[in-house]
Design a binder for these strands. Structure first.
Lengths: 336, 336
DNA sequence: GTTAGCACTCGCACTATAAGAGTGCTAACA
DNA sequence: TGTTAGCACTCTTATAGTGCGAGTGCTAAC
């Protein structure tokens, strides 16, 4: 038994009905509303087949059918007709204007703003930073044995870390050391810088001793550059969906949202291109009833972060996928 | 009619019972469990008085009594017996060790960690920064007409802002300008700096023209220094309380948590000293069934931020008040 | 002032019932 | 052979009715 054109049309109709109504779809209503031109009995037969093939499920014997994850996957991969209207498309393109100016703003407000537009819980992941190339380095004294190491990267992103340095160093020598570092490190990636610093620490030659605790510095850099950050916005949005009317579900969802590591790995999974993860595909038990739609954005030359939304598997995929892609593009423009 | 000692004891017993059980407290159970040595009838009489005086409420005529906000206020102000055990106290004192090192860590993890300990939704407010005094200033070039303005304050907090500067300025002149600024601004508060910059912009003398758009800079500083930041941790905790079993309530709560401005003003209300806001006292409709317990922490010389928890009005006030105070003190030590 | 007793109230859990939606199967039809 | 109409059956959901129990207020006695 294979999925012929009519089965596909029926499946699509069921999915789209279910996405809107959140109630199991019956054969009778479907034959009336979907305009397929066949009777409910025929649809029943097809439904029975689709159920057998794993595309539909019945909550109980006398209820209508509900699409399975397999059905959503098929829908996302092969069906998905309409996306946005022109007006919506235009709105998405200009959405970030005057709201997001730099990475800081993005982290602080991005998720919030995206969630506002989509009415889904939104996620924003910063670009992986260990691949950024150093364009200049400067040491700023901040008093009693501490200095601020400012690293400007080629895409204009600025990382800074407070370092513990030898108390003997005055402003001018720090400035000099900064210039020296700047020359040596220019063009290297943050990861290479880190490894270089670890190397210095190991050999402990004259240069290395200038700063006390080079290894420590490298460690701090590792912490800063590897730990990509993710922000969550509109967490409460999930509570508008009847799927989360039970507190216990909402609780599990919310608790998971607080696990940044988990969110980061979730977003990383689909890095670089728009992507849809359905239910179990997320790989996170607490999100096994959720779908995640992500889209990349670029900062400078090829460093990509990701934005995403998360909601019940019953999601207007066509709409949201296109929306996220557009928002990612709009964001890339804002940030470059 | 006034609140005599026995009425107080009864009220206290009711409050403490209700905090644990979350069910209206009846006269019979109270006379048995509270060890007051009076019969249920007597308690009933007293309860009737307390109800009349506004300390107790009845959900319906044949239910037990529930403490009103007025009762909680009385409890917090005049009663509140036991606090923490010695073990808990010790744990609180050493709780932050090796977790929170600087302001960044505090913002990133503080709320999360406090919520973990208390099982309440936690809030962390950064110290108000416009009162900080400048100890040094440095300009770091970051390429094509942009510079990073690093302001180190007396308590070691570092604020940095990316500025748009004239493209004609090379590294050395920026460094010089930085030194110049440093001398002029040293000892001023960030607010004074801001006003000074606005003044420069207004008079537009020779010094001012060095940086293009001084007013812009001042504006950016205002944005950075006035907008104190608040982070939320353990938002899901509220969902463990039966008061929030209804999604609509949880939703309102969660939505309000996303309004940072609201949270900031909430935390600011009780700046400087441990404080308890009960129900309507919060001044926020969405939190009118919540209580907020806050405690201050200090960074450096007298600049205070605040930590807090928020939960249902039915809260173990004695316990939590002491806990938050201790945590605030522990935090102050970590950060100085 | 305190207590025992008693009638009364009212929410809540439980049961029974009816309604409605939807299915699967069978038989007839094109 | 595919499609359709009809029908019996299933199962959820909503509604109403019922009994129980917790708790109160009042009264009268101690």
């Amino acid at each position: 038994m294979d999925v012929d054109a009519r089965k596909l049309r029926i499946l699509q109709a069921i999915i789209e009905d279910y996405i809107l109504s959140n109630t199991p779809v019956g054969s009778r209503t479907l034959s009336k509303t979907s305009g397929l031109g066949v009777s409910s009995a025929t649809i029943r037969n097809e439904m029975a087949d689709l159920t057998e093939m794993g595309y539909l499920m019945q909550p109980h014997v006398s209820a209508g059918r509900v699409p399975s994850e397999k059905a959503y996957r098929l829908y996302v991969t092969h069906l998905m007709p309409e996306g946005l209207t022109d007006a919506e498309r235009e709105r998405a393109r200009t959405f970030f204007t005057s709201r997001i100016h730099d990475m800081e703003d993005l982290l602080a407000q991005g998720a919030e703003v995206i969630s506002e537009l989509t009415h889904y819980t939104a996620l924003v992941l910063t670009p992986r930073q260990s691949d950024l190339k150093v364009s200049r380095v400067q040491l700023v004294p901040v008093g009693e044995g501490r200095a601020l190491l400012v690293i400007v990267t080629d895409s204009g992103i600025i990382r800074d870390t407070v370092l513990r340095v030898s108390g003997r160093l005055d402003d001018t020598s720090l400035y000099t050391i900064g210039r020296m570092l700047s020359e040596r490190l220019q063009g290297l990636t943050l990861r290479q810088v880190r490894e270089l610093l670890y190397g210095y620490a190991a050999h402990s030659d004259a240069d290395a001793r200038v700063l006390s605790g080079i290894a420590d510095l490298a460690g701090q850099m590792e912490k800063q550059t590897e730990s990509d950050r993710v922000t969550v916005g509109g967490a409460h949005c999930i509570l508008y969906y009847p799927e989360y009317a039970e507190v216990s579900r909402a609780r599990a969802f919310m608790a998971e949202l607080e696990d940044r590591d988990c969110l980061i790995s979730l977003m990383r999974q689909c890095e670089g291109q728009p992507s849809v993860l359905i239910g179990a595909e997320t790989g996170i038990p607490a999100f096994s009833d959720c779908s995640v739609i992500t889209a990349p954005y670029r900062v400078g030359h090829g460093h990509t972060g990701a934005i995403g939304i998360i909601g019940p598997t019953r999601m207007p995929y066509a709409h949201m996928t296109e929306l996220m892609t557009l928002l990612g593009e709009a964001l890339s423009e804002m940030l470059s």
